[in-house]
Amino acid sequence: MIFLELMWEFLKVGVFSFGGGYATLPFLYHISANYGWFTSKQLSDMIAISSVTPGPVGVNVATFAGFVTSGILGAFIATFSVILPSYIIVVTVSKLLKKFKENKHVQAGIYAIKPAGCGLLAAVAVKIFVDNVHGAGMYVLWAGLLLFSLKQKKDALIYLGISAIAGLAFGLLGII
């Protein structure tokens, strides 16, 4: 029964959470309150852990909830359920887009949707800049990394590596 409940609850998260990542959080608090599979303290720890583990927050929390309630099988079911709606919806949209690619309204929509996507991501850049970059050391790291990256394009891993080492060094030097 627990498997069906897990499946049902995380299918709902998958279907109703618009806007990604943190949009899943209200649902997860609701689950925590209704089922007691995990406490809200565990959930907030989980969000912190999620930022240091690979993968999107929504998926991480689903895996975690499934795992603490009923082991690996539970983890698998919860994770599968949270992404199943995405799969069905996105594949359907992809098919429709392919089919109606020549339609002039679809082309007009795509023409407008690209700058919209770019604008939304620019807003994310502004938000995470405000959240993540404070203190002189971080400003210097940010500006240096930005200049370096504009000069020569490298693998994303290299920038993340440099910034991790810089964070560690700043901590050791006490300038964070």
Binding site: A125, F129, S163, G167
Partner: peptide, 14 residues
């Protein structure tokens, strides 16, 4: 500290 640093790297990537 490490993840504060990574946070800055992420801003640059975005």
């Amino acid at each position: 500290n490490i993840f504060a640093g990574v946070g800055v790297g992420v801003v640059v990537l975005v």
